[in-house]
Write a protein that binds this DNA or RNA. Structure first.
Lengths: 224, 224
DNA sequence: GTTTGGATAAGTGGATACAAAAATCCAGTG
DNA sequence: CACTGGATTTTTGTATCCACTTATCCAAAC
């Protein structure tokens, strides 16, 4: 029912695709440290191919902002500085705000029901302490911006969520806080139900920026 | 003084870079028709290299949204449907709005002077009928969003300008219209000078969306 | 006259090979 | 004992080659 918009589809038709999916997942989960160097040969060996498709996967990951590629100097895990993390949230805020503005006129009772379900799932994951909370949280947001019906917008927001994901995980592991989060997201649903477009956009913007300030206190991100 | 933020630097340290710059420029100028297939061998021959670096350049261009890459089916020039063109402007509007919001507190008299100069240059190119107008227009906008001081934001906006550029050229060739454009942009400068942050953001958003509707009437974009 | 099928050509993806650049190591020097 | 410079090793960038997929074209069938 809910397409997982933040992760590439799990079926690889080419070696490059396989390498991309493999690395994308690993990077989302924070399996590599920021600044760590990714050696094509090694990764190629891990997944049983030559380094050529891995190189091409690197290029796509670089475009996603997940790694940095410098001529003759290889591929390093990007990570976000505190400034960059804030910037990502600033961009997210206006893009998700726009998505809400566009989605508002299309919302129906079924959508609200689905949002309630998604919030419940998120809440439960939070109580269980599982870091599934991060995924459920992404799904909640993805469902909303997905309703904008704008493919490019959706892709850009999803990419930002991916870049942010490792820091969200760290944050979640540090501090349990699905309590205030629950209220925040319930708040979003309420304003959606009110039908006030401009206000809904503003609330979403504020929600995203609010998360940024909370996160900034904990995650002391690494340099690239 | 003004970094050209919408075009990659013209110095290539690797063959891949050279291929990327070559194709990027050609695509910006609309040298290839939307839907046209790009054959690595041919392009490699044109610029004297093997097709491997060209393939890698394709991936970057695909990430920029300038071409589409499908497994075993090669690389085709993307082009924008009318919906996609509108979407690009919607995204531009909120991103450039954000950029203005962030830039506002930093603006000084010198910046206003530079904006006046840029507007004049744009105007002159417009009167001359030269399609330099499109570039001057980009420079004007680039100067503004550059003042936001947010690298990722700047890159994203610049990429959107590039994707839009071919359609702006068609538009400009069809209809002379630096007249109303002059007023629009003078308007922007005025609201910047007023120091009203929220209003400036809104005016920029409206300006960008306004351009979209004008453009949509003329450019009948192609499918991908 | 259009459609279908299959031979043939063209193109793509990936592996390997080779060249060039960068990183590392180590000995000699101050 | 730190530092410099150069040989060695590692890694990256590009070219070439081969296997496989897709596109093209032409002839036979309907």
């Amino acid at each position: 029912m809910i397409a997982n918009l933040s992760s590439p589809s799990p079926v690889a038709s080419t070696a490059e695709e396989e390498a991309y999916l493999y690395l994308h997942k690993a990077l989302r989960l924070g399996r590599y440290k920021a600044g760590e160097r990714l050696i094509p040969e090694d990764i190629a060996a891990e997944i049983g191919m030559s380094r050529m498709p891995v190189r091409e996967a690197f290029r796509r990951l670089a475009a996603d902002g997940l790694v940095t590629l410098r001529p003759n100097r290889g591929c390093v895990v990007a990570g976000l500085t505190l400034d960059e993390l804030n910037e990502a949230f600033e961009i997210r805020s206006v893009l998700e705000g726009l998505a809400v503005r566009l989605a508002m006129p299309r919302l129906t009772a079924e959508h609200f029901e689905e949002l309630d379900r998604l919030l419940l799932r998120m809440e439960r994951a939070g109580e269980a302490g599982s870091s599934d909370w991060v995924l459920r949280h992404q799904e909640f947001h993805a469902y909303i911006y997905g309703l904008s019906g704008r493919p490019k917008l959706i892709r850009q927001i999803a990419a930002l969520h991916v870049a942010i994901e490792p820091y969200m995980r760290i944050w979640f592991d540090y501090v349990e806080k699905p309590l205030s989060a629950r209220e925040e997201h319930q708040n979003l649903i309420d304003v959606f139900k009110s039908g006030k477009v401009a206000e809904a956009e503003r609330v979403m913007e504020d929600h995203v920026l609010g998360t940024a300030s909370l996160l900034a206190e904990f995650a002391s991100p690494s340099r690239r």
